[in-house]
Design a protein around this nucleic acid. Sequence first.
DNA 1: GGGCTACGTTGATCCACGTCAACCACAAAA
DNA 2: TTTTGTGGTTGACGTGGATCAACGTAGCCC
Lengths: 248, 248
Amino acid sequence: MQMKAAVPVSVASLKAACSQCNLQELCLPFGMSENEIDRLDELVGARRKIKRQQHLYRAGDLFEAIYAIRAGSFKTDVLLEDGREQVTGFQMTGEILGLDGISTEFHTCNAIALEDSEVCVIPYGKLEELSREVEGLQHQFHKVMSREIVRDHGVMMLLGSMRAEERLAAFLLNMSQRFTARGFSAAEFHLRMTREEIGSYLGLKLETVSRAFSRFQEDGLVAVQQKHIRILDIVGLKKLLHHQPAGG
Amino acid sequence: MQMKAAVPVSVASLKAACSQCNLQELCLPFGMSENEIDRLDELVGARRKIKRQQHLYRAGDLFEAIYAIRAGSFKTDVLLEDGREQVTGFQMTGEILGLDGISTEFHTCNAIALEDSEVCVIPYGKLEELSREVEGLQHQFHKVMSREIVRDHGVMMLLGSMRAEERLAAFLLNMSQRFTARGFSAAEFHLRMTREEIGSYLGLKLETVSRAFSRFQEDGLVAVQQKHIRILDIVGLKKLLHHQPAGG
DNA sequence: GGGCTACGTTGATCCACGTCAACCACAAAA
DNA sequence: TTTTGTGGTTGACGTGGATCAACGTAGCCC
């Protein structure tokens, strides 16, 4: 690398700038005015890169900031003393991590990168401060938290009331919808998580997940090749959701 | 009713007053200064009585306010098209209902009184407004939402990774802890919900819940008489949680 | 009091999913 | 090219909890 005077652009590349970000529509700035987003730029700190399998934060860590996923993807999980793991969610670009920490000032779950990823660091103290001034930010932040609560209720429904194949169908449809929202194909995508992680999320063992994938393939609903998924019959998948097979 | 000039006291009895409420420590005012709580009084609207089995709100209702439980208790649930119900939570005095509605401006679950109950109505628009001015309110409100997220993660753990008896033990310990926080006995309490509702919450059938209760009774952990519960061996119950019996 | 209704308990049987085990696919290292 | 490791698939079998069914209990209204 040559020695030369620092160029503003290189500094800008280290700092996040919501106003320039193409994830606005999916992220905290959604619904905010241009002016408001400019104010948001003040508060978003540096970006941070997280390598695959590394922790963004751990249960027990002091809570200082929330994180917006700029690139890559994560899982969050909770561990029981005896080693059992419950994956509580998979997060994609534009989604916010760390909200669990507000309640006690300590994080209560782990956030782990599923691939090499990058997050924007949003210092929480500053966020509260600014959202007292910027109405749009306040409102949007509340919506983000509320959406998390609603999402969690959906997972409870899934874990509490659905059978294995319904759960996997719901999972695939959810992934498809989120890929679509990010401009990717609704029908063909690459899962970043293992069968075991999907199983943990869905309250199933990895073998059950694998068998359900095979069943869907036999039935012509999807084409599965390891982590690569092609949805062939989205209507068929949706039909799986709404009536339990054993004539209820 | 006789015609006479309105007396301030009778008006006050219709309106909530956080500053006078003995549930402060459990509710939105927790951690706020006396001054801040006085400001909170401005915004909390009338109380509303809800009879047993009646809805406070339904999935699909327009979201306008959140509610603090002043007396009684509630369940929240989500219904699937085919009629399956998932209870997403049981709420007691001081707890906040309705946070799910912020995300879409519509409620996404039902809130139903388990007994004759009363709530304080907190108009959401006003809450956002005031929490831009009152730092303590803003912070506390965020904590309440975050706590809900953390609680939901706990339920996911329960539904995704625990066996029937672990789930019921976790449920009983949680109830006991919440009764304690409200000044009731930790060891002896009255459940307001049916076996079916407990089962729905825990992802089990009512028969399984009933059998687990019977098993706990045989093992001398609790004395069960319908909805009346007496915990005899809290340590024993806790031990159930942390190692799955079938030598994992 | 007697009958009704909602809720709870208990037993017998069934089955969806877990468990255990073998094998396969692919990627990175040697 | 083989080796090694991680993740995925598939089969055989076991079991925890669901299902089906009968009966018990408590509150409520007439």
